[in-house]
C-alpha cells in the first residue's frame, strides 16, 4: 500500500464520517427546523402544566411555530410560567391569541396550541398571553366524570 493510497483512504474515511454526522444533523434531527437565535420569547401563565416539558412543541393551526424553552413556578401567584420561543418569521400573531395545552393522541406528548384572536396588534418579544387553558389531566377528568355519575343517579 503506497502512502498516497493510504492518504486517499483516510480522506474517504474522514469525509464519510463527517457526511454521516451531517446526515444525522440535517436529516435525522431537528436542526433543519431550527431558526437559530432569531426567534422571540413570549410567556404564558397556567394553573396546571402537568406533562408539558421544555422543548415541547408550540403550534398554531397545527403547524409548529416554536418551542417551550422554560417552565418556572411563580411563588406569589402559585402558577406555572411557561416561556416559549417563537420562530422569528411569525411576527403577526394577534396579541389576544390564547394558549391551550393539548395532548397528541390520547396518551401522547403534551404541546401548546395557540389559537388566533382578533386583535390588530401582534405579539412581540416579552409579551404575555392572557388567555390560557390548562392541561387536561386524565385522572381529574375521570374523577369528575365519576363524581357526576354519583351526584346524578340514573333518573
Amino acid at each position: 500500500m503506497t502512502t498516497r493510497a493510504i492518504e486517499i483512504w483516510v480522506g474517504i474515511f474522514v469525509v464519510a464520517g463527517f457526511v454521516a454526522l451531517f446526515v444525522l444533523s440535517m436529516q435525522v434531527s431537528n436542526l433543519s427546523s431550527y431558526q437559530g437565535e432569531k426567534g422571540f420569547d413570549i410567556t404564558a401563565r397556567f394553573d396546571d402544566v402537568s406533562g408539558l416539558k421544555v422543548r415541547s412543541m408550540v403550534t398554531m393551526a397545527g403547524v409548529r411555530i416554536g418551542r417551550v424553552t422554560a417552565i418556572e413556578f411563580d411563588d406569589q401567584a402559585l402558577q406555572a410560567v411557561v416561556t416559549m420561543k417563537i420562530d422569528g418569521q411569525h411576527r403577526t400573531l394577534p396579541r389576544d391569541s390564547s394558549a391551550n395545552i393539548y395532548t397528541a393522541g390520547l396518551l401522547g406528548e403534551k404541546y401548546i396550541g395557540l389559537e388566533a384572536g382578533g386583535d390588530e396588534a401582534s405579539l412581540g418579544p416579552g409579551d404575555q398571553i392572557q388567555l390560557t387553558q390548562d392541561a387536561l389531566v386524565l385522572e381529574k377528568l375521570l374523577g369528575q366524570f365519576i363524581s357526576r355519575m354519583i351526584d346524578e343517579p340514573a333518573k
Partner: peptide, 16 residues
C-alpha cells in the same frame, strides 16, 4: 480519539 466519533456517526447513519 478522532476515528471513534466518525465511526459511531457512520454506524448510526447507516443504521437509520
Amino acid at each position: 480519539f478522532i476515528a471513534m466519533p466518525l465511526l459511531a456517526s457512520i454506524f448510526s447513519a447507516v443504521g437509520v
